[in-house]
C-alpha cells in the first residue's frame, strides 16, 4: 500500500526564493484499488510520484510504500514498486528481451524467472515477433508494451503510472488501460496520474484532485458527485478549484 502524510517538496528558484510544488499532501492507497491523482499540468502530480519512487527527496512529511519509508529505505521501496510513465524512452540499440533482462537483473530477479515472465507476458501482450528486434525499429505501441513488461518484471505489489497514456494513440492507450485494470485484478495497489477527466472516470476507484501542489478533495466518484451536486467530472473539478480560490480570498480578507 501507499501512505503519504503531509508531504512537502520545494524547488529553489534562481532569485533565492523557493517554489512549493507539493504542499502538505496526504493520502493513502490500498491493495486492489486504483487511485487517481487528477490535476492540470504543473499541479504537482509528477513530483509527488517522483518522491514515492525515491527520485526526489521531500523537504518534510512522510511517504511509504508497503511500509518502507521512501527516505530511509529507498532500496526496499524501489523493489516493491513498478513505475511506468507515458514518455519514458527505451535503449534504442537493445532488443526488448535484453532490455527486460537488464531491468530484471537490476531488480535482483533470477534469470530463469525473467525468462518465464517474458514468455508469459509476450504471449499475453502479443509481442513475440519483435522480442529480438532492436528497439529503435519498434513502433510506439510496441515500445509501450516493452515498458509495461519492464515495469512489472519484478512483480511489485505497488504500481505507479505517471500520465501513462500521454502522447499515445487510442489503441496503445487502450492497452495501457487494460493493463492497469489487470493490475487491480491481481490485487496490486495502483496509483496513476492524469489530466484527462474521462480516464479518471473510467478507471479510478478513488480520485484525488490536486491543484497548485495542494489536494482539493479526495473520495470515490459517487461521493464527490454527491458532495458537489454535479455529475460531470470536469464540472466537479472546476467546482473544487473555484472553491479553493474563494477560500483563499476569504482568508486574505480576514488577514
Amino acid at each position: 500500500m501507499i501512505a503519504v502524510q503531509a508531504l512537502v517538496k520545494e524547488f529553489p528558484k534562481k532569485d533565492g526564493t523557493t517554489f512549493r510544488a507539493v504542499d502538505e499532501v496526504s493520502f493513502e492507497a490500498a491493495h486492489g484499488e486504483i487511485v487517481c491523482l487528477l490535476g492540470v499540468n504543473g499541479a504537482g502530480k509528477t513530483t509527488t510520484m517522483r518522491i514515492l519512487s525515491t527520485v526526489f527527496k521531500p523537504q518534510s512529511g512522510k511517504a511509504s510504500i508497503e511500509g518502507f519509508d521512501v527516505l530511509t529505505q529507498g532500496d526496499q521501496v524501489r523493489r516493491n514498486l513498478g513505475f511506468l510513465s507515458g514518455d519514458t524512452g527505451l535503449y534504442a540499440r537493445l532488443t526488448p528481451r535484453e532490455f527486460i533482462h537488464y531491468f530484471g537483473r537490476l531488480y535482483g530477479v533470477q534469470d530463469n524467472a525473467i525468462k518465464r515472465r517474458i514468455e508469459e507476458m509476450s504471449a499475453l501482450l502479443d509481442m513475440r515477433e519483435f522480442l529480438d528486434k532492436k528497439m529503435e525499429f519498434l513502433s510506439t505501441g510496441m515500445k509501450q508494451k516493452v515498458s509495461i513488461v519492464r515495469s512489472i518484471i519484478h512483480d511489485p505489489p505497488v504500481m505507479i503510472f505517471d500520465e501513462p497514456t500521454a502522447g499515445l494513440d487510442i489503441l496503445t492507450a487502450r492497452n495501457i488501460i487494460a493493463f492497469i485494470r489487470d493490475c487491480k485484478q491481481r490485487g496490486k495497489c495502483v496509483l496513476f496520474s492524469t489530466h484527462i477527466m474521462r480516464e479518471a472516470e473510467r478507471l479510478a476507484d478513488r480520485v484525488i484532485m490536486i491543484h497548485q501542489g495542494r489536494i482539493l478533495t479526495q473520495g470515490s466518484l459517487p461521493s464527490l458527485r454527491e458532495e458537489s451536486g454535479l455529475t460531470d467530472l470536469d464540472d466537479i473539478f472546476v467546482y473544487y478549484v473555484n472553491q479553493a480560490s474563494a477560500d483563499a480570498k476569504v482568508e486574505a480578507h480576514e488577514f
Binding site: 517522483r50 527520485v55 519514458t88 524512452g89 535503449y91 531491468f103
Partner: peptide, 14 residues
C-alpha cells in the same frame, strides 16, 4: 535526453 534515466533511477539499482 532520451528520457531513459528516470526508469533507471526507479529501478532497484542505487
Amino acid at each position: 535526453e532520451r528520457r531513459t534515466l528516470e526508469t533507471l533511477l526507479v529501478s532497484s539499482a542505487s
